[in-house]
Amino acid sequence: MNIRIYSWGLLVVLIGGWEAFTRLSGLSSLVIPTPSAVVEVLWGGLTIGYLWPHIWITTIEMLLGLSLGCGIGFLCGVLLEENGFLRRLLWPYIIASQVVPKLALGPLFIVWFGFGMTSTVVITALICFFPLLENTLTGLHHIDPQKRELFRMLGATRLQALLRLKIPSGLPVIMAGVRVAVVLALVGAVVGEFIGGRSGLGASIIAAQGMMDSSLMFALFIIITLLGMIFYQATIVLERWLLSNHLKGSDP
């Protein structure tokens, strides 16, 4: 028997249980809406179309923040790995900045960049920056010493060693960083909108909260989950493609 059938069956049971619970318990639908109400709101929002602009905005913020954060994080990682002086100089600061809760900087960014997309993108980028920086540093650093010797023996330049040895061999670790960043990017975008967004899924949740519309909140929650899953799957596909030439223990 296929385990997937059970997985889907479990979902049906959970939703059925939820529906039964909300109908029989007599709790106010303001506290917990029935699944059917949530689906109705969701369906309405998607067909009438008022949810699409919000989905679109959050997606763009996430993509922008993700690519900015990953790009800059990767480049900084390469720079610090190649320049030992810079690395030793900046290391304490990098450690310090890692423990700062980046979302707590949200209000400051609103002062700097105003309400709206820019501050959300900046927060998202900042959150994505660190996993990429750290994984790039780790990935580029732990190279088989024998392979380094091979490249020295072959008279490779530093740039060649970077592009043809270090980055390809660190790629699995770097891609693991990207996967972490994707998950964090969605958190960053949604919470960023909580703090400083005018539109987007996070801002819509705050608006729904203001109207005590818990069905809408659940509908938005489902959309965010789906969005996250799509991005995560896309990353996995990208990773498979990039690493298809690497030795992999688990995948056949």
Binding site: M153, G155, N245, H246
Partner: peptide
């Protein structure tokens, strides 16, 4: 003083690049 191109070296382990 440094590795030269007219020297060929075979390491004790194969040291191949996995991604090539």
């Amino acid at each position: 003083r440094a590795p030269k191109s007219q020297i060929g070296f075979v390491f004790q382990t194969p040291t191949l690049l996995d991604w090539l």
